[in-house]
Deep mutational scan, measured.
Amino acid sequence: EAHAAIDTFTKYLDIDEDFATVLVEEGFSTLEELAYVPMKELLEIEGLDEPTVEALRERAKNALATIAQ
């Protein structure tokens, strides 16, 4: 499951495998979680700032909209 989540994140969020791995290690496994989890939870991840989190959430929401079509 972790590998599938990493693949999904790299494909749809335009991030590298290392960043995707950090997200999975922090407990995220779906685009929905990244799109809708409280921003505070993402900001608790070391190295993430508000602009990065906002961009990540926007990419996740856009990916979900694209997949739904």
Score class of each variant (00 low, 15 high):
Ala35Glu: 02
Phe19Glu: 03
Lys40Gln: 13
Asp49Gly: 04
Leu48Cys: 03
Asp7Trp: 12
Ile6Pro: 02
Asp14Ile: 07
Tyr12His: 06
Pro38Thr: 11
Glu44Ala: 15
Glu33His: 12
Arg57Thr: 05
Val37Tyr: 08
Asp14Thr: 06
Glu54Met: 12
Thr66Phe: 14
Ala55Lys: 12
Tyr36Ala: 10
Ala35Gln: 04
Ala4Asn: 11
Leu56Arg: 00
Met39Trp: 06
Pro51Gln: 14
Ala4His: 12
Glu1Val: 12
Arg59Gly: 05
Pro51Ala: 14
Glu50Asp: 06
Ala2Ser: 11
Ala20Thr: 01
Pro38Asn: 11
Tyr36Asp: 07
Lys40Asn: 12
Glu25Met: 15
Glu17Lys: 14
Asp49Met: 04
Ser29Cys: 08
Leu42Asp: 02
Glu58Ala: 10
Tyr36Cys: 07
Phe9Asn: 00
Thr30Gly: 04
Tyr12Arg: 02
Ile15Ala: 02
Lys40Ile: 11
Phe19Gln: 06
His3Phe: 10
Glu46Phe: 15
Asp16Ile: 04
Ala63Cys: 04
Leu64Val: 05
Glu41Phe: 14
Glu26Cys: 10
Thr21Ser: 10
Phe28Lys: 01
Glu33Val: 08
Pro38His: 08
Thr8Asn: 08
Glu50Val: 14
Leu31Met: 04
Val24Ser: 04
Asp14Ser: 11
Pro51Thr: 11
Gly47Ser: 07
Ile45Gln: 02
Gly47Gln: 05
Glu54Cys: 14
Leu48Tyr: 05
Ile67Pro: 03
Pro38Cys: 09
Val24Glu: 02
Asn62Ser: 12
Glu54Thr: 15
Ala5Gly: 05
Phe9Ile: 02
Glu50His: 09
Glu46Arg: 13
Ala35Trp: 05
Asp7Gln: 14
Leu43Asn: 04
Asp7Tyr: 13
Gly27Tyr: 03
Tyr12Pro: 01
Thr8Ser: 07
His3Leu: 14
Phe19Lys: 04
Pro38Asp: 14
Gly47Met: 07
Ala4Gly: 08
Ala20Gln: 01
Leu13Thr: 02
Lys11Phe: 13
Lys40Ala: 12
Ala20Pro: 01
Thr30Pro: 00
Leu64Phe: 03
Ile67Gln: 07
Glu32Asn: 07
Leu31Gln: 00
Glu58Pro: 01
Leu56Pro: 00
Glu58Gly: 07
Val53Tyr: 06
Leu56Asp: 00
Glu44Arg: 15
Glu33Met: 13
Met39Ala: 09
Val53Ile: 12
Tyr36Phe: 12
Ile45Gly: 02
Ala63Thr: 04
Arg59Gln: 07
Met39Leu: 12
Ala20Phe: 02
Glu25Phe: 13
Gly27Ile: 01
Glu1Ala: 13
Ile6Thr: 04
Ala60Asp: 01
Thr52Gly: 08
Lys11Pro: 00
Lys61Met: 10
Ala4Trp: 11
Leu48Asn: 02
Leu64Tyr: 02
Glu44Ile: 12
Leu56Met: 06
Asn62Trp: 09
Leu64Pro: 01
Glu1His: 11
